[in-house]
């Protein structure tokens, strides 16, 4: 895999979102650099423990802050955010994160049942979502698409929509990014824990509900556990955080059922390791860097 060379970022755009929010768009296009910069600014703002900050939300290529204007004037916070942007060397960030093993059962019967119910909402009503994403990404077979989909790890660039949903950006160069349109009209139903893809992002739906991403796999392990019953959820009701690195591991029906049994018994634990993520090393040789992360995870 060649090195990843991203274009320089444009000037960030700041706007108020009414009196209680400030929105900063780092770039209109998705890139690792835009996300790392948004994350670095959010982390620095968090470290400063500014009075009147209610929420700090890094997103794919932007971030959002909620404030209490009775405590801090929006214009003062805006000035502080610009000052943080100017003071940080956001092109050379490194940060502590985790590599997490995420089992997934591709071409499973449950997402297939749901997607077949919503063919009228789809660009290619005659086939399945998997056939469609395979074709428009130029793969010869569904198996090849599936291999590309889980072959390289993903970087969690945003969490939200509903509690715990990760937007996952594959850790490959632009020439290898899988890009797929969303449904023409969103479905009114998606099974909980469906693994999907829309735009340049993979996503796992935490709960059953509406959705517009292409569906083709099912994850056996919850990613949102409001009762905090599974051991990994003792400290937090969601598992994924911005900056996490996910390795999707394909399992077959037997593997899926075995993991489900552990989930039902409330004994399942995600396999994960802590790492220090070095973007510059990753950009220089993504294939080798990813291979080393995966090797450490399964060592």
């Amino acid at each position: 895999m060649p090195p990843i060379v991203e274009s320089p970022l444009p000037e960030a755009r700041y706007t108020y979102g009414g009196d209680e929010f400030i929105f900063c768009e780092i770039a209109e296009a998705m890139s690792f650099g835009a996300n790392f910069k948004a994350l670095a600014i959010c982390q620095e703002l968090g470290r400063r423990k500014v009075d009147g900050i209610v929420e700090i939300c890094p997103a794919n290529a932007s971030y959002l802050v909620r404030l209490d204007p009775d405590v801090i004037a929006p214009s003062d916070l805006l000035a502080q955010l610009k000052q943080i942007e100017a003071s940080l060397d956001t092109a050379h960030v490194s940060f502590s994160t985790r590599v997490i093993d995420v089992p997934a059962y591709y071409d499973d019967p449950w997402t297939r049942e749901v997607l077949m119910r919503f063919r009228a909402n789809h660009q290619a009503p005659e086939g399945t979502d998997l056939e469609y994403v395979t074709r428009i990404n130029g793969f010869a077979s569904e198996q090849e698409f599936i291999e590309a989909h889980h072959g390289s790890p993903y970087y969690v660039s945003m969490v939200g929509f509903v509690p715990g949903l990760p937007w996952c950006f594959q850790m490959v160069g632009p020439e290898r990014q899988l890009e797929v349109p969303k449904y023409l009209t969103p479905r009114t139903d998606t099974p909980a824990l469906a693994l999907s893809h829309g735009g340049a992002f993979a996503a796992i739906y935490p709960v059953q509900g509406p959705g517009g991403y292409q569906l083709f796999a099912m994850c056996p392990v919850p990613i949102f556990d409001p009762k905090e019953e599974l051991p990994d959820f003792q400290d937090s009701f969601v598992i994924f955080r911005v900056g996490d690195i996910l390795k999707i591991r394909p399992v077959d029906r037997e593997g899926y059922d075995a993991i489900r049994a552990e989930v039902e018994a409330k004994t399942y634990r995600y396999k994960m390791i802590d790492v220090e993520f070095e973007p510059q090393e990753f950009f220089a040789d993504p294939e080798a860097y990813n291979a080393e992360l995966v090797r450490k995870l399964y060592a």
Binding site: G17, G18, E20, F21, F23, E25, E28, A29, M30, C57, A59, N60, A61, S62, Y63, L64, R66, M158, G160, W167, K182, G199, F201
Partner: peptide, 11 residues
Amino acid sequence: NVVDVGYPVGS
């Protein structure tokens, strides 16, 4: 469509 962003309440 835009690259997914955070939505302010009231947006």
